Simulated scan of single mutants.
Amino acid sequence: MASIRIAGLTKRFGEVSVLKGLDLMIEDGEFVSFLGPSGCGKSTLLFCISGLEDIDEGSIRFDGREISDLGPRERNIALVFQDYALYPHMTVRENIAFPLRQQKLDEATIGRQVAWAADVLGIEPLLDRLPAALSGGQRQRAAVGRAIVRNPSALLMDEPLSNLDASLRVHMRTEIRRLQKELGMTVIFVTHDQEEAMVLSDRIAVMKDGVVQQFAAPMEIYSHPANRFVAGFIGSPQMNFLPGALCGARGDHVVGVRPHDLKPGVGGDSELSLNGTLVLIEPAGPFQFLDVMIGEQVVRATCTDTAGLTLGEGITLCADRRAVRYFTPDSGLRVDQQPMELESRSHVL
């Protein structure tokens, strides 16, 4: 496996810059996700690393070796795509063996490598089936088997789970993470699904408009987002953003608090309190989501027991100050320290 160093990488399509001077260091054996909305440049970055797209500026190094001018085959990487890309006329065994035959290896070596990949992925009983006779999850495992069979320097995956149903997606991401840990592979995983990225990754590169907004461990991004975009993109439901004045504070900073940190209460010295009107209770398994109208804005909170709560009546929501984040109104950058003193503990509306 390999470490991957990206320095000053810029990619343009005509006059449009889709990647803007990116710098990333991916360690050997690390699982990194590129996460962001459609059009942010995450798949383009993956294709630049793989050699499917040329870069306009910057460099890409595998274990310190410059590979920017090498073709995809010379980079010793493996790709897994959203559509699996299995050859329909070949059995699973033949699909997995295909890249080894392209390398003109002897049949004994090919047989050993195919058997190893099939054993690792648990697909031995499927080796003589055609892709049409496989489920979505089985096809995905076969595609991964074809990717890992030749021991690549890095495994690159472009939204490989998006065609699967919800339960199978959860199962497959567990299998991918187990496989990565077992083999010590360097994996780059492209997704727009923040839950996938949070569960799978050692670190996540959150992207917007061709720029990496934050590159850090999942819980670091969740707890200490670099800016308002990251704070709003990571976490479900989305973080609440309120004007500082609405929270009874001086200054024009934006206040952010996650729904899971905002709960019904009576206030306290260490809490931020907001008074509003309960407009919706939404069951969500072990807890309920509450939609509360505060001024002209709906704020979402959570609780485990809705007894005593009535739609249309007043409610107080509280959050520990340690869970509250502050963002500048212009750039949206997070302010590490509270930028303003609260004029009062509670803002009554």
Rank of each mutant, 00 (worst) to 15 (best):
G314C: 02
T306F: 10
T310V: 15
I315R: 06
Q297S: 12
L280M: 13
I315S: 11
I294H: 03
Q288L: 10
L272G: 03
E296Q: 15
L278V: 07
P283W: 11
P283I: 10
M293I: 09
F289Q: 10
M293D: 00
G312Q: 05
S273W: 01
G276N: 13
R300Q: 14
G267M: 04
D291M: 08
V298H: 03
S270Y: 09
E313T: 15
R258Y: 04
G267T: 06
D269S: 15
K263Y: 01
G256C: 10
F287Y: 13
T306V: 15
P286I: 06
G268Y: 02
G256P: 12
G265F: 04
M293A: 15
A307H: 15
V298M: 11
G256D: 03
E271T: 12
I281D: 08
H260G: 11
T304L: 07
V292F: 03
L278A: 03
D305L: 01
I281H: 07
G308V: 11
E313F: 12
G285K: 11
D305K: 00
D305E: 08
L290D: 01
G308Q: 06
H260L: 12
E296H: 14
V257C: 02
G265P: 11
V266C: 12
G314D: 15
V255L: 13
G267D: 08
A307V: 11
